[in-house]
Design a protein around this nucleic acid. Structure first.
Lengths: 345, 345
DNA sequence: CTGAAAGCGCTAACAA
DNA sequence: TTGTTAGCGCTTTCAG
C-alpha cells in the first residue's frame, strides 16, 4: 500500500524484490544489474537502474556478504593514537582500501584491551583481511585467522614469528643510519631515548644504534625507555638523561614526538644549544619535523610504500592463501635538517 | 588440548548448527547462549559455550545484522587527515563506540570524493548511525538517512540546516574570546588567518573575531584564507599577511597547525618577536600546542565532550527517531600560553 | 539472457 | 526453558 510512495515516511526498507516488481523483472535480474560484469542485457539493466533510482534502492552489503562470503571489509587494529604519524597511516590505509572498493573497520586498542579479543570482535564481521599494528600476534590469533582463510598482516611491528606476513621499516638499519651520522659528525657520548621497552620498533632501532656504535669501537653512553611514544614522555626521559653527571652529547630518539620533547627540554630547560652542544636524531619524519621550530634531523619511514606493500601482500594472499608468509623490511632514509651539526669542511 | 586440529582444517566455516550438534542442542539454544539476557538455562549455556570454544565458533555478525536489522556498525566520514586533532577525535570516537559494543566503519574523503557518494557506500552496510565531519550534508543525503531511520550527526561542522543533529564547538564565541584577549592585551592591528573559505568552522571563527572587534570599535586589519588546515598552508598565508605595507600586530589563526606555520614564519623568516611584536592565537589546542617551541595561546575545543555528546545524541535518536533535530554548541575555553603578551600590571 | 528456487548463518515467533 | 520453523536480502546454480 505504501509501497512505491516516494516520500514514504519510515516505510519498510526497499529490497531487490521491490525493485524487481517496479521494473517488471525478476530479483535475479536486479542482482545482476548491480553486479559488474554479470550477464544482463543493456535494456534490462537500464530498467532496473531506473526503478532502483526511483525507489532509492541500494543493495544490502550484509546480505550480499553473507551470500558471497566476501564482506569487502578490512579490519585495522591500532594502538598508537598519540603519534601523529598514525593519522597519516590511517589516511593512506583508508584511501588505499577504498580505492579497491573495500571499507575499513577500525579498532582501537590504545586504552589497553587485548589484541586477541579485539581481533575476535572484528572477525565476527567476516572481514576479508586484517591489518594489525599493535603488539605481538599470538599463535592463537594467527591460527584463528588461518583457519578462516583470513589474511593477516602485521604492520610496522616485527613479531619475530615466521608464520605471519609482516611489513615493517628496517628499523635496525634505520638505527644504524642515525648512529653513523652522529659518529661522523663528531658526537661521541651518544645516548638512546627509546620508546616502550616491549615495542619491537624501539628495540630494533636501539639495536641498530648499538650495533653501529660498537662497529665503530664506541659504546652506548646511556639510555632510557620513555613510557610511551609521546611528547611529554620524551621530555621526562630527556630530563633524566641530561641530568646525569656526564650527560650525552647526542641523542637518538625512537620517534619524532619523543625527539620534539627532548629538543625542547634541551633548549628551553637546560639551555643547551642544538646541534652545537647536543645532537638529536628522530625517527618517522612526521609533518611537523620540518617546522622551523624543530627542523629535526630524522630517519624517514616510508609510510606510503609500507601501506602499499601491506595491501599488496594482503591481496596476494586473498588469491592464494597457501603462500609462504613473508617479512618485508622497507628501507628508511636519512632526512638531514638542523639538529645535527654539519660536516667539517 | 587439541584446539588446533579440532575443526575442519580450513574447511567449511563453523556455524551455529555445528555447535548445536556438538552440544546436543538446537540452533536456537546456541543463538540464545550468545545473546546476553536471553532465556537459557545455565547448563545449556555452559554446554554450548564449551562446544563453541572447542570448535572455535563465533557468531556471524553479518547474518545476525541481517536478521536483527542492527549491524552494530557506526559509520564515520572524515575529511581532515592533516590536522593532528583528528587523530585524537578518532581515538575518542572509536573508544566510545567500542565501549558500547559497536564498531567503527571509517570512510576517508580527504582526497576529494563526494560526501553523498561516500555515504551511499556506507549506508549499504546498514550502519546503525552515521557521524559526518565533512562539508555540508545535502538534503538528499539527509533524506536517505531519514527514510532508513539512520541517525546522522554532523560533527564539528555547522551546516545551517535545521533538519539534522549537529554537535559543534561554539566557534563564533571562540572567535570572540580570541579577539577580546588580543584587544585587552593592547594589540590593535588584528588580522585573521582563516582556513578554507567554505569551511563553516573557519567562517564562524572569523565571524566571532570580527564581531568582537567591531563591538570594541575596531575593525579587521586584514585576512587570508589558507588553502587547507595545514602547517605549510599556514606559512604561505602568514607570509602574505606579514609582507603587507602595514602588517598586522596580531593574528588569530583558524587552527593550531596554521598557527604553528604563522609562528615559525614570523620568528624565523621575518625575525619578529612573538608575543612582543606579533601576538598569535590558535584554535583547537592540539597536544603540541604546549610544546616549549610553540607554547601557543589558543582556544580549546572540548573534543572529548563533543564526542560524548555526539554519541549520546545518536543513541537517543536510535531510540526515538522522531525527535526534533538538535544543534548543540559546546563552549570553548581560552588556554593562555606564550604567544600573546601578558596583561599590563 | 532470464526466472525459479535453494540457500548463506542467524534470530524470533510460536509451540511444546 | 527448549525446539521448530519462517524468514532477513541477497547471489547463484540450473532450467528454459
Amino acid at each position: 500500500m505504501r509501497e512505491r510512495d516516494e516520500g514514504a515516511p519510515a516505510g519498510r526498507r526497499v529490497t531487490a524484490m521491490d525493485v524487481a516488481r517496479a521494473a517488471g523483472v525478476s530479483v535475479s535480474a536486479v542482482s545482476r544489474a548491480f553486479t559488474p560484469g554479470a550477464s544482463v542485457s543493456a535494456r534490462t539493466r537500464a530498467r532496473v537502474m531506473a526503478a532502483a533510482a526511483k525507489l532509492d534502492y541500494m543493495p544490502n552489503a550484509l546480505a550480499r556478504g553473507l551470500m558471497t562470503q566476501r564482506s569487502n571489509l578490512i579490519g585495522i587494529i591500532l594502538t598508537n593514537f598519540k603519534n601523529p604519524l598514525y593519522l597519516s597511516v590511517l589516511d593512506h590505509f583508508t584511501h588505499a582500501i577504498q580505492q579497491r572498493g573495500l571499507r575499513a573497520l577500525v579498532f582501537n586498542i590504545s586504552r589497553g584491551g587485548d589484541l586477541t579479543e579485539a581481533a575476535r570482535q572484528i572477525l565476527q564481521y567476516s572481514v576479508d583481511g586484517l591489518i594489525v599494528s599493535a603488539g605481538a600476534i599470538s599463535p592463537l590469533l594467527a591460527g584463528q585467522c588461518a583457519r578462516r582463510q583470513i589474511p593477516v598482516v602485521a604492520f610496522a611491528r616485527n613479531p619475530r614469528s615466521k608464520d605471519i606476513d609482516v611489513v615493517c621499516a628496517d628499523n635496525v638499519a634505520g638505527g644504524r643510519m642515525a648512529a653513523r651520522l652522529l659518529i661522523e659528525r663528531g658526537y661521541r657520548r651518544i645516548g638512546y631515548l627509546g620508546g616502550s621497552a616491549q615495542a619491537s620498533t624501539s628495540q630494533d632501532r636501539g639495536k641498530g644504534l648499538v650495533g653501529e656504535l660498537e662497529d665503530a669501537g664506541l659504546s652506548l653512553h646511556c639510555s632510557v625507555h620513555a613510557s610511551e611514544y609521546s611528547y611529554e614522555a620524551g621530555r621526562v626521559a630527556a630530563r633524566a638523561l641530561l641530568s646525569m653527571d656526564e650527560p650525552p652529547d647526542a641523542l637518538f630518539c625512537a620517534n619524532d614526538v619523543l625527539a620534539f620533547g627532548a629538543l625542547d627540554v634541551a633548549r628551553h630547560r637546560f639551555g643547551l644549544s642544538v646541534p652545537g652542544q647536543l645532537g638529536i636524531v628522530g625517527f618517522d619524519d612526521i609533518g611537523l619535523a620540518e617546522a622551523d621550530s624543530f627542523s629535526l634531523t630524522t630517519v624517514r619511514q616510508p609510510i606510503e610504500e609500507m601501506v602499499r606493500e601491506t595491501i599488496a601482500l594482503m591481496m596476494r594472499r586473498m588469491e592464494d592463501p597457501r603462500l609462504e608468509p613473508e617479512t618485508r623490511l622497507l628501507s628508511c632514509s636519512l632526512v638531514e635538517r638542523g639538529t645535527v651539526r654539519g660536516p667539517r669542511l
